[in-house]
Design a protein around this nucleic acid. Structure first.
Lengths: 314, 314
DNA sequence: GAGTTTATGACAGAATGTGTCACCATTATA
DNA sequence: TATAATGGTGACACATTCTGTCATAAACTC
């Protein structure tokens, strides 16, 4: 086997078995231990972080982070990846440590000069914006780990209402939306699934009280939302052009929106009666851009609400 | 020079100069043409897409997309990059073609089995959510190109008010926010900078009328927003705990927010008089969570607005 | 047809890689 | 304290691979 190939395979092998002895590899590759030692030194020079200990039970280890076999990307792929990772800088917290920054600089440094120039030209001209929030979420990593390995966590959570309280949860998934990190989890306190905002989780630790984790195998990111409305009532609204554009920006509304040729639109869908307080606020916000045709119940609610507000501003 | 190093440098060189002749490289590396030929064949086998033509004016070319020198990432870096690129799938349009998908699969395929398992375990449990919108923006690539190379475009734009109209613009930058792509550009029609929503740009083509591009060198992403308020008036608001949380979610508001120990908060900042209509809507939306203390002008505006709305719902 | 350029094979000599051996250092454990 | 396990290094002869040279071919331009 040519040396170059052996080195590649050696790198793979070494990454797979994080601990190994020289003799082991020598047998595996059919070369002498001296050769393996020389090869390992070369790998080391190439950046694989090897560490060795002498003596019985000693041996080699791939220390810290393992290095993955090098991947060759095309220029376009590299550019796309660069900006994807670049977008992560908007997040003050990430479930991975600071690795995205190092990946970015690694990318940048490895590019031939002209590709680097191209990226430089684009860097100030393309962006994926995410609102930057103040509070960071220090416990993303542990939440993610718990979600992956089905562990129960004891957390201190500051909910909307209360100051702070401790509860046991079993995370299902975490996701970033609009600059905040959320974690859907089974809450043993409330006996059901809840969404927690991660920056309000003050502390998180693996639960030691022996609470049995649930089998949440089929619950995951893909199963959010989309419930049938309960106690349906008919919502009918006429929208101006601007009204349509403002509704399009509302994610939850977009699916029920009917847009006409001329840009105006309408909503005509069953919604839950329980959501009336929510719609009340929303249609007050839309102002002149929406003409509410029904239900009367919602109209009443809006009228009452407007009067209440008016009273506050006298 | 050891062969392995020569091959690496050869790959770089070959990628830099997309066209070259064997003799050229032989001189550059101080080896014979025969050796270079053998090396090029090896590069070829390693995946570099080389193409050669014999005869005068012939020579070698790197065909299709060039392959960048392989980069070795650590496991954590790779995972972070995987999810960064994974997040791009929420965008129906991107300024780069389908490269993010191929980058993703390349990543996935090159991972040793256990890292792949790790990613599989996390794939359904972490996400960066971006609202998915209907309209895609077909002209992102040309907008970006125009921004980078300072070109003037002739576009068909459907603005909020009008059906559609053609105008000449010179893009400055493009950015994705909340699921929409926007393009800030100098508009030769309006003689000033405007923000265009890219999915409303029906058509875009390089301008042929000979409009002279402007030198927008110093205008870029970094200089958005942050203007001093004109005609400042003092905005003073008292916020409940929930009020604070809702304000934190508003990007433009977060910097002026003062949060107290107990979770409640206040706003006390100069704002532009011209923004009163905007604040009117906003504080109506906040309802009971905010107590507006001033200015009187804004209170009046809110009262008037509430009365108008009430009239619509009688 | 003359000139340019890639393509391939053969082979000797040069360069590099490999195995063996000798020896050292460190450490766990009997 | 002795012993065995383990990595680390240098020297040197031997093996293998790599490289240059040469011959030859084929494709193409002018």
């Amino acid at each position: 086997m040519p040396k170059s190939k052996r080195l590649m395979e050696l790198m793979m092998t070494v990454n797979r078995k994080r601990r190994f002895k020289v003799q082991e590899l020598a047998d595996e590759f059919g070369v002498s231990t001296r050769t393996i030692l020389r090869d390992l030194q070369e790998l080391s020079e190439l950046g694989v972080p090897l560490y060795s200990e002498v003596g019985p039970h000693g041996g080699y280890q791939v220390v810290r982070e393992r290095v993955l076999p090098p991947i060759a990307f095309t220029e376009e792929e590299a550019v796309a990846m660069f900006f994807a990772v670049h977008a992560l800088r908007h997040y003050s917290s990430l479930p991975f440590e600071a690795e995205s920054a190092s990946a970015l600089s690694k990318f940048y440094l490895h590019m031939p000069g002209d590709v680097r120039d191209r990226i430089d030209g684009m860097k100030d001209r393309v962006d994926f914006i995410t609102p930057t929030r103040r509070g960071d979420a220090p416990c993303l990593a542990i939440l993610l780990d718990a979600a992956v390995h089905r562990k129960v966590l004891a957390v201190e959570y500051e909910s909307k209402e209360k100051e702070a309280g401790s509860r046991r949860i079993q995370p299902v998934c975490i996701y970033a939306n609009n600059g905040f990190w959320y974690c859907t989890a089974y809450c043993f306190l409330r006996q059901g699934f809840r969404v927690f905002r991660c920056d309000r989780i003050r502390e998180a630790a693996y639960d030691m009280s022996g609470t049995e984790p649930l089998d949440l195998g089929d619950v995951s990111l893909s199963r959010r939302g989309a419930a049938e409305p309960r106690e349906p009532i008919r919502l009918r609204v006429e929208l101006s052009r601007s009204g349509v554009q403002r509704c399009e920006a509302e994610l939850w509304l977009a699916p029920m929106l009917h847009v006409r040729e001329d840009g105006s639109g309408a909503i005509d869908k069953d919604v839950s009666r329980g959501d009336i307080p929510f719609y009340t606020e929303f249609f007050i916000g839309l102002g002149d851009e929406a003409i509410l045709e029904g239900p009367a119940e919602l109209k009443d609610a809006i009228r009452r609400r407007l009067n209440e507000l008016l009273a506050r501003y006298l």
